[in-house]
Simulated scan of single mutants.
Amino acid sequence: MNRLDLLGSIVHYIGVLGSIYRYMIIAYILLSWLPNARDSVVGEWLAKLVEPYLAPFRKIIPPIGGMLDLSPIVALIALQFVIQGIIGVIVYIAELFM
């Protein structure tokens, strides 16, 4: 396996992990629409993985009208920027050494 294949694999896996985490956040948001769904095993598991990431956004962005929480949307957008930034840095560093 040459360096370019390795770089492609790393970038691919970072993208896949980012997509999985995005879907976890979306599933966690959807669970809030169902009564007692967050109290299930899956809901608690997702809460342990997603809430540490969402908590800072919830501190900054208050709910609108006391009910509508837009912080997960901002968190998803920020996550996309972070993933693209990490991929960009990896590609830049790889280009320095090629």
Rank of each mutant, 00 (worst) to 15 (best):
M1A: 10
M1K: 06
N2P: 04
L4G: 07
L7K: 04
S9H: 11
I10Y: 08
I10E: 07
I10L: 15
V11I: 15
H12V: 06
H12A: 12
Y13T: 09
Y13M: 13
I14A: 04
V16A: 05
G18H: 09
S19C: 07
S19H: 11
I20S: 07
I20A: 10
Y21D: 01
Y21E: 02
R22N: 08
R22Y: 11
Y23W: 14
M24K: 03
M24W: 04
I25S: 00
I26M: 05
I26Y: 01
I26Q: 01
A27Y: 07
Y28M: 07
Y28L: 04
L31C: 13
W33M: 14
W33A: 15
P35W: 13
P35E: 15
N36R: 15
A37S: 11
A37Q: 07
A37H: 07
R38Y: 05
D39V: 06
D39M: 13
D39I: 06
V42K: 02
W45K: 09
W45N: 07
L46S: 02
K48R: 14
K48Q: 12
V50Y: 00
E51C: 03
P52S: 04
P52E: 03
P52K: 03
Y53A: 06
Y53I: 08
L54T: 00
P56A: 02
P56F: 01
P56G: 01
F57Y: 10
K59M: 12
P63Q: 11
I64N: 09
I64F: 15
M67C: 11
L68M: 15
L68A: 14
L68R: 10
L70F: 13
S71Y: 00
P72A: 08
I73G: 13
V74T: 07
V74D: 00
V74G: 01
A75K: 00
L76R: 01
L76N: 02
I77P: 02
Q80R: 09
Q80N: 12
I86T: 10
G88A: 10
I93M: 12
A94T: 06
E95D: 13
L96W: 09
L96Q: 12
F97T: 14
F97V: 14
F97K: 05
F97R: 08
F97H: 11
F97Q: 08
